[in-house]
Amino acid sequence: MLVAPKPKEELIVYLSTSHGAISAVLMTKRDKVQTPVYFISRTLQGPELNYTLMEKLVLALVFAAKRLRRYFQAHPIAILADFLVEKPDEAPPHTSVVETLQEPWTLFIDGSSCVDAMWCGLILD
Rank of each mutant, 00 (worst) to 15 (best):
Y51I: 06
Q34T: 12
T35K: 15
A65I: 10
V37F: 05
I79L: 09
I12P: 04
Q73N: 07
V62G: 00
K29A: 08
A81M: 13
L80D: 14
K6A: 14
Q34R: 13
K87I: 10
T28R: 13
F83A: 06
V13C: 11
Q73G: 06
L84D: 06
D31K: 13
V13Q: 03
V97A: 11
M54V: 15
L80M: 11
D31T: 07
I40T: 15
F72I: 01
T100C: 10
E86R: 10
E90A: 07
L101Q: 09
S16W: 00
L124C: 15
E90F: 01
C120Y: 13
E10M: 01
Q102Y: 12
M118C: 08
E55V: 08
E99W: 10
Q102K: 11
L80R: 15
F83P: 02
T28H: 01
K6T: 11
Q73L: 14
Q45D: 02
I22A: 01
A4E: 15
G46V: 04
K56T: 05
A21I: 00
E99A: 12
P88Q: 03
D110T: 12
V62E: 14
I109Q: 08
E10A: 03
F72Q: 04
S16I: 06
L53A: 07
V98E: 07
C120M: 14
E99D: 00
L122T: 10
S113Q: 11
R69L: 09
Q45V: 11
V115S: 14
G121V: 06
T28E: 10
S112N: 10
Y51Q: 06
L107N: 05
S18P: 00
C120I: 15
L2S: 09
K32I: 05
K87R: 12
I40G: 04
R70T: 15
W105K: 10
I79R: 07
H94C: 02
F39W: 12
G20Y: 07
S16K: 00
S41G: 10
P47T: 12
D125R: 09
A4H: 11
T100H: 12
T106S: 13
E99L: 13
Q102P: 03
Q45I: 09
V115T: 14
E10D: 04
T106E: 14
P92F: 01
A91S: 00
D116P: 02
D110R: 07
T106A: 11
A81N: 11
K32R: 13
S113D: 10
D110K: 09
M27Q: 07
K32C: 05
H19A: 08
L124W: 15
A24C: 01
T28Y: 02
A21R: 07
A24T: 01
E10S: 03
S23T: 03
I22K: 02
V37S: 04
P7R: 05
A91W: 10
S23Y: 04
V3C: 08
T17F: 02
G111Q: 13
M1C: 09
T52H: 13
N50D: 11
I77S: 05
V13E: 00
L2E: 13
L107E: 04
N50Y: 10
S23L: 00
C120Q: 11
F83K: 04
D89G: 02
A74I: 01
T28D: 02
P104A: 02
P47W: 02
I123F: 12
Q102M: 09
V58T: 15
V25M: 03
I77M: 14
T28K: 09
D125I: 12
V85A: 08
L122K: 06
T95Y: 00
L49S: 07
R42W: 09
M54T: 15
V25N: 03
